[in-house]
Design a protein around this nucleic acid. Structure first.
Lengths: 150, 150
DNA sequence: ATAATTGCAAAGTCTTTGCAGTTTG
DNA sequence: CAAACTGCAAAGACTTTGCAATTAT
């Protein structure tokens, strides 16, 4: 897991003025290794503790905060509870199923029209990477009783 | 504050199968009285404790949960931390400034196009009342250093 | 060298839960 | 009366903070 992609991201980190340390490397490796690429802080903690059982939670939180500042990762709130983090090297937007929690990545241009519209009509500057669309994935939708549907 | 609107909402509550109790009445009065109509659970607690200093937090959380189930209020996640609640009798959507926290209500049809599009392209059923647009209000945007803008 | 970062412990905020007693419909 | 609800206490989930020691540049 210490491949090309890790180095690219560490370079970005360094260019932005951040320091490359063991813990940061491990956090980034964990995020790259995760199949979903969308992790809560707690999931990062678990992932990282596989190799380093003494890794502290506070280090994870501070590392994630710093990586957000440095634009290496993004922080997105997907409903109540867990804030999630993902590497920001591949721009995309999120659909979140409020029933099963599934996160779907969709192309970043999805919000383009809406962004223009809220800007024109409400003088609001949309940050669409932070704006999550909440709803129901197809599987959950078809298994829900009709009268509960929104 | 025990006017017409309170009674209308209590009727709705009863029709949905909920029971009208002192605590519920006070929670609804507090939400109607709030200028913003968008309250966190903690704000409901404070509001309600003005008249009833022994009001328990757990009662507020349980009451809000139940009112959400009964479709009397809506729960919306506005970024990290605060879950907010508002009466659902007047449909609208939310723009949230991530710098100052200001919540702007906008017409419910704002998401119509986008909803069709995610449905057609991603088989996703958008619940737009739960989908918050995050960005920057005009005031914050113009006071932010240009290089920080997204 | 010095500013950034981590280890560690403690605490803070927001929310949920269990159970006994009370109240509503 | 039965089911729903509240009071109260305790705990759970998630996150932040302070300070001393360490490390990257």
């Amino acid at each position: 897991m210490s491949d090309e992609r890790v180095r690219t991201i560490l370079d970005q980190l360094r260019r932005q003025g951040g320091r490359v340390t063991g813990p940061r490397r491990r956090v980034i490796e964990a995020m790259l290794a995760s199949p979903s690429h969308h992790l809560t802080a707690a999931e990062v903690v678990s992932a990282v503790r596989v190799d380093d059982p003494d890794f502290y939670e506070s280090t994870v939180y501070r590392t994630l905060d710093r990586l957000v500042e440095l634009a290496v990762i993004d922080r997105v709130q997907l409903g109540p509870g867990a804030t999630i983090f993902h590497l920001s090297h591949r721009p995309h937007r999120h659909l979140v199923c409020e029933h099963c929690g599934e996160v779907t990545e969709v192309p970043a241009d999805l919000f383009d029209e809406l962004a223009e519209r809220v800007n024109a009509e409400h003088r609001f500057f949309l940050r669409s990477s932070a704006s999550t669309l909440v709803g129901s994935c197809e599987r959950c939708e078809s298994s829900r009783p009709r009268h509960e549907r929104t």
